[in-house]
């Protein structure tokens, strides 16, 4: 099924039209701020008239403001098109990016930059299900590889140091889907 994926939980504006693992179109730009202005025009340009069968939206953890922009946009698009909207964890995306970068891993720490120098994350397996989410005091030093922009804040080597990338949403299994409700890491 053609899926529109939206991630605005980080400084990146990341959107993609995917079908399973196939990426039909992708726009990923580090914009810092301004998601509220840029998101909808970017989706319009990306889709070029195509209507997806469902929408997956990054519900965090990450920037509270960014998360809400993504969810508000996704839910409104879902309402207008009459298609289902599911949430996905930013950590599931970061993990999928990590496993794609190193096929030999069976687990990794998916870590995001939670702002104010804080890192949020969780340890995920290849099922990409993020069981919990929370702010982390520091690396666990359990020998499990690190992935995501949060790892860079700790100055640790990582499988990748990227923000969540919507282009990876298509590989998430149904078990990793959430309701389209914000995950606030600091709560």
């Amino acid at each position: 099924m053609r899926t529109l994926a939206i991630s605005t939980s980080s400084p990146a504006l990341s959107i993609a039209l995917v079908d399973g693992a196939a990426v039909l179109a992708r726009h990923h730009a580090l914009i810092g701020r301004g998601h509220a202005e840029a998101l909808v025009p970017a989706v319009q340009a990306l889709l070029a008239g195509r209507v997806p069968g469902r929408i997956l939206v990054d519900v965090g953890p990450g920037s509270y403001t960014g998360i809400r922009i993504g969810i508000a946009g996704a839910r409104a698009l879902g309402l207008a098109w009459g298609v289902p909207v599911h949430g996905i964890s930013a950590l599931s995306l970061v993990a999928a990016q990590g496993f794609a970068a190193d096929a030999g891993l069976s687990q990794l720490w998916a870590l995001i930059d939670a702002g104010r120098g804080q890192v949020a994350g969780a340890r995920l397996g290849r099922d990409l299900v993020a069981g919990g989410h929370g702010l982390l005091a520091g690396p666990a030093d359990d020998g499990v590889a690190l992935a995501g922009a949060g790892a860079l804040l700790w100055g640790r080597p990582a499988v990748h140091g990227d923000h969540p990338d919507a282009g990876f949403a298509g590989v998430l299994p149904d078990a990793a889907l959430l309701s389209p409700q914000a995950l606030y890491a600091g709560d």
Partner: peptide
């Protein structure tokens, strides 16, 4: 404001 405006934009674009 951002929540409401993005919602309005998404509805306008999709419809």
């Amino acid at each position: 404001v951002m929540v409401g405006l993005v919602t309005a934009k998404a509805l306008a674009m999709a419809a």
